[in-house]
Each structure stands twice: as C-alpha cells, then as structure tokens.
Nucleic acid binder design. Sequence first.
DNA 1: CGTGGATTTGAGAGAAATCAAATCATGTGG
DNA 2: CCACATGATTTGATTTCTCTCAAATCCACG
Lengths: 242, 242
Amino acid sequence: MTDQLASTLITKLCVSNDLNERDLQALRRLPIQRREYGAREAIVSDRQRPHVCCLVTEGFAFRSKTTFEGQRQVLSLHLPGEIPDLQSLHLHVMDHDLTTLTPCVLGFIAHEAILALNKERPSVAAALWRETLIDAAIFREWLLNLGRRPADARMAHLLIELYYRLKALGRERNGEFELPLTQADLGDCLGLSTVHVNRVLQQLRGDGLIEVERTRFRLVNIPKIEKFSEFDPTYLHLDPKN
Amino acid sequence: MTDQLASTLITKLCVSNDLNERDLQALRRLPIQRREYGAREAIVSDRQRPHVCCLVTEGFAFRSKTTFEGQRQVLSLHLPGEIPDLQSLHLHVMDHDLTTLTPCVLGFIAHEAILALNKERPSVAAALWRETLIDAAIFREWLLNLGRRPADARMAHLLIELYYRLKALGRERNGEFELPLTQADLGDCLGLSTVHVNRVLQQLRGDGLIEVERTRFRLVNIPKIEKFSEFDPTYLHLDPKN
DNA sequence: CGTGGATTTGAGAGAAATCAAATCATGTGG
DNA sequence: CCACATGATTTGATTTCTCTCAAATCCACG
C-alpha cells in the first residue's frame, strides 16, 4: 500500500506545483514505511537528529515549541499530504517538536531516498523546496497575526487560513470543515489563554461569523470574515504560478 | 568588483555550510549587479514578481508586512551576506516587503543565474535551500517569542539573537555591536508599541543586562540574558553539522 | 452512572496600548 | 555659530485588552 501513501503526497504537491508524469512516477517509487500513531503522540522531538521525513497520510499533526515554564506555542498545523519535517533534510538537528493531533497514518521516508530522488528529478526537488518555502510564508503571516492583530481578528484569520488549505485538499463543504483542535490548542496557536479563546469564539459566533460545535467549524459569512481578519490567500501560494 | 560582492555571500554561506573550492569558484562566477540604496528604500514590494534576488553586501535590510491600519510587523532582519528574498526563486509573487534599513550596497542576481548554478553545483543548491530553511527556523523562534514571551524577555531574546548572528560574521566585540534600529523599529520587530519598547529597554538597563546608546548595543551579562530570555542558539543552525 | 476532559462563567489583576506632552539630539540654513 | 526644524527618546496618565484564578457546567465514554 505504499502507493496509497504516495498518492496523498502527490495530491498535495500537485496543488501548488506543476509536476509531469515522470515526476509522479518517480514519487510513486519512493520507499515509504507506513506506521499508525495515536492522538497526541510525539513523532520527532526537539534536539533529535532524524534520518527520515514524516509524511502525514491520514489525520492532523502540529509542530510546536515550549517555554521553560511549559507555555506552548504551536508553529504550524499539518494536513494530509504534507511533510512537516521536510526541513530536517538539510537542518540536521530538530529545533522544535512534531506531534500528532489526531490518530494518524504516517509514512516515513529516508532522507537518502529523498536526496536521491532530488538528484534524479530536479523538478521534484524544486517542488519540495517550494513546499518548505510555503511553510515559511505561512510562518510569516502568523508572525503578523501574533504581533499585530487583536485576538478576535487573529482567531478569524487562523480559521479562514485553514478553510482555504482544507478546501484545496477537498476537505471542506459550504464553509464547513472538521478541525480537531480544542480551545486550549487554539490558544497555543494564537498565543492566547484558553479562557480568552472561549470568549473570542463566543464573540465571533455572536457576530454571526462562525458556528462551532465540538470540532466542526462552519464559516457562515466568508467575505465578512476575510474583511474582518484582513485575510488574503496570496501567502498560501496555492497557485503554481504564484 | 563583482568579486567583492560574491565574497560577502561566500563568507555568509560558509558560516553554516560546508562548501568546497569548486563550489566557491562557481559562486565567484555568478553575475551580480551592484547597486547602492539609501536608508529606508523599498527593494521589492508585496505583490511584485521579481526575477532577481537581492544580496545584501553592506548595510542592513528587513522584511515586513503591514496591516490595513498601517501597523507594521517586521518579519526578519538581514545582515551582509544574506539574500533576504531568496524565496522568490520558487515563490513567484512577493507576500511581503523588503526594505533597506541603512544605506546599503546591494547585489542583484538573476533567478536564471542561480537556477543554472544550482544545476551545475548541487551542493550550492543544498546550501541555498538550507539558508532558506534557517530563515524559517528563525521565524519559528520569533513565533514563540511573539506568542509566549513577555515584553522584556522578548526584547532580550531579539538582542541576543542578533548578537550571535553578528558575531558569526565578525561584527561584534565584547558583546557590543552596531544595530541601526530605532525604538519604533524594535517595536515593529516585537509586536510592541514604541512607548513600551522604551520602558522595557530602561528596565533591562536598570537590571544591568544591557547598555544602549543610540544604535550601539552592549550586552553586559550574556549568561544572564540567555537565562532570562531562554535563549538557546540551536535554532540558528550556525554549525553545518546541526 | 461516574469520571475526566473540555467548555463556560465570573471576578479581579496585570501587561501593554493609547494619548499627549516634554525633552533630547542632530543636522540645516541663515 | 546660533536658531530652528525634525525625528527619536522619555515621561505621565489613563484605558483597554488579555491573563489568572477559581468554580460551575457540559459532554463523551467506559
């Protein structure tokens, strides 16, 4: 079933990259080792020196850093088809943690295999490089979010970003999507306390912008949310031309 | 004097990468167009589609994003030898601004030239990719800084990061370095108001951690600052082994 | 049912922003 | 070489946002 794993990767890569049939064939030949993880299990930890990369095939994962006092900052959320620790290909020591959010099916790919593929297919190398650059572009937008937006706009911005990213993978319907984050998790993404997250969500609900029940989010009025949170999807670089 | 320009780049690349003599020769052959800029001049702007990359040879530059209400968030500071818009090689549209901080000597390198070099010298390609990954690693640390550290530790963390980066380039002496940022700029880096920056600096001075006069900063007690700001230089990936 | 995690509510404290004005350079033109 | 304009830093007073602490409620699941 390696092919199953590779096809998730291919789906994701083809969202933002123009790859040809030979590239895809080479990707399908990648040796990927499948493993199942439970929710909230560590995949790789700060300081480790992995020799494999992790492809998220089913489920969600996140990267985070933690303060000495145990305050956590989520750095990024990862959806099926993404390789959250692709940076380890060239950064040999981990500077953060990678953890499953939900139960996951993960595919592990040896660095050597990816490096060999990069050599064989430069356009795949370019696509992978580009994926890490999109990763960084999202970090930049999150910096603006954390540094300069008030809590309510910050929350709205996060939700609509995930809406766009899930939509690109076909995991959204009518502004509605599954997002298995607790309010504490949202706080860790946004640099807010759990209590404040709760109040902000109530406010957004009260303003008729969103509906939430458990882990199901619905963006009721997307144009209004985009305006309110100053959202512009350019930074996601979803179009290979951008 | 293209060689002058290339040598700044080589100095910087060799801080974090193992390159051999043939790599360096290829780098020296890069066609680089020199141009001088004044302070606070736009180099590339949000939405543009550059076909060159910009090498900072002398002076400082910064990347930033701006809110509709004009609130600015500085995303990164760039020192001589760095290529702040290297991401434009694979992300075709700019999602932020790149501006000079001080008067600068810049070297412009055509994308085509870099792509050709990457093809000719895969180890240079790997080094450049790695540089963009270090860039992203710094974004991640800044996310933790903005999201989870109080203003005083946030400031201390920024200063000591710059201390390490300047030191790696030989631009520091006894914890003392030139940093041409106004207090308003520091606020834009840290997501703080100018007034609060001023008060935090006074506090750090009062605690005997730093000395500042105009644009000259001195870190008086580095171990204490590192402890106070929870600084650990791993994320800078200064060592090619890390 | 009972238990533990998640969400919600309330009250109060604290951090940082805002607004406004004063002071301090620094550099320019007369 | 001084008067003045400009930008940067500093100070004070007040407001706003967000956090902390503590407790109550809700909900899924065994």
